[in-house]
């Protein structure tokens, strides 16, 4: 669950990234957050993961109050979110299995449970056979599936995907998006996908939130990206 009330962000250099954002996403929703570059999307995500602090406004992610979160609780907030990045952000020197497993080790899960869960999650994204490979040995689409497996492994209540298909060709992009939809539908995990790829968004009939110049300019359930003024 996510709630933002009149959230603004002005960076130290004076750039206003967000201006009065109001956003509510309920558990189990699938939401596209769309907007061109420099629209404020990235800042919004960084506020959700507590990488940057909002300048004004109020916010809540899962059970964490963004205005009053203590430094030592930030790891807990991030564990309740599974984050998927455009550039995958896998550790090249670890195997696929280890890349996913170490998200569980960070939470202090016993090794016995880790093995079982990682195998299950890798099966879910269709990469069970490549568990022993290194990230440099697999394709971009596969890398993104590893990243999704890693985001999923700790059973987060929400997955945030930041341009997950930005580095992939259209066919792979569609596969990744379908995988995210599948996770949303089967596990009931809330999914927030940030993207600027119109065609991809149009293929799914999901809620689309459009952001421009730091403001939400449209928020329609079932709305299509192509109809918006973005």
């Amino acid at each position: 669950m996510l709630r933002l009330l009149d959230v603004s962000k002005v960076y130290e250099n004076g750039t206003q990234a967000l201006a009065g954002i109001n956003l509510r996403i309920d558990d189990g929703e699938f939401v596209f957050l769309v907007g061109s570059s420099a629209s404020g999307k990235s800042t919004l995500l960084k506020i959700l993961t507590s990488e940057v602090e909002m300048t004004s406004g109020r916010g809540m992610v899962n059970s964490f109050n963004l205005n009053r979160i203590k430094a030592r609780d930030i790891p807990k907030l991030r564990r309740s979110l599974g984050v998927v990045f455009q550039d995958f952000r896998l550790i090249d020197k670890k195997t696929i299995f280890e890349n996913v497993a170490f998200a569980m080790r960070a939470v202090g899960t016993p090794p016995r449970k880790i093995k079982k869960r990682v195998e299950y999650v890798l099966g879910l994204v269709g990469l069970k056979e490549k568990a022993d490979h290194y990230p440099t040995q697999i394709s971009g689409g596969e890398k993104q599936r590893v990243a999704i497996a890693r985001a999923l492994v700790n059973n987060p209540s929400m997955i945030i995907a930041d341009e997950p298909t930005g580095n992939l060709d259209p066919r792979m992009s569609l596969d990744i998006m379908k995988l995210l939809v599948k996770i949303n539908e089967q596990a009931g995990t809330t999914v927030l996908v940030v993207t600027h790829e119109h065609e991809l968004v149009d293929k799914f009939e999901k809620r689309v939130v459009a952001i421009r110049d730091g403001r939400i300019v449209s928020d329609r359930t079932g709305g299509y990206y192509q109809n918006e003024v973005v």
């Binding site: 030592r72 790891p75 991030r78 564990r79 984050v83 952000r89 960070a106 939470v107």
Partner: peptide, 16 residues
């Protein structure tokens, strides 16, 4: 540093 940043984004605490 990238490796460290990834660990932090996944929700690893500092001591981990």
């Amino acid at each position: 540093r990238e490796e460290i940043a990834i660990m932090k984004m996944i929700g690893a605490n500092n001591s981990f």
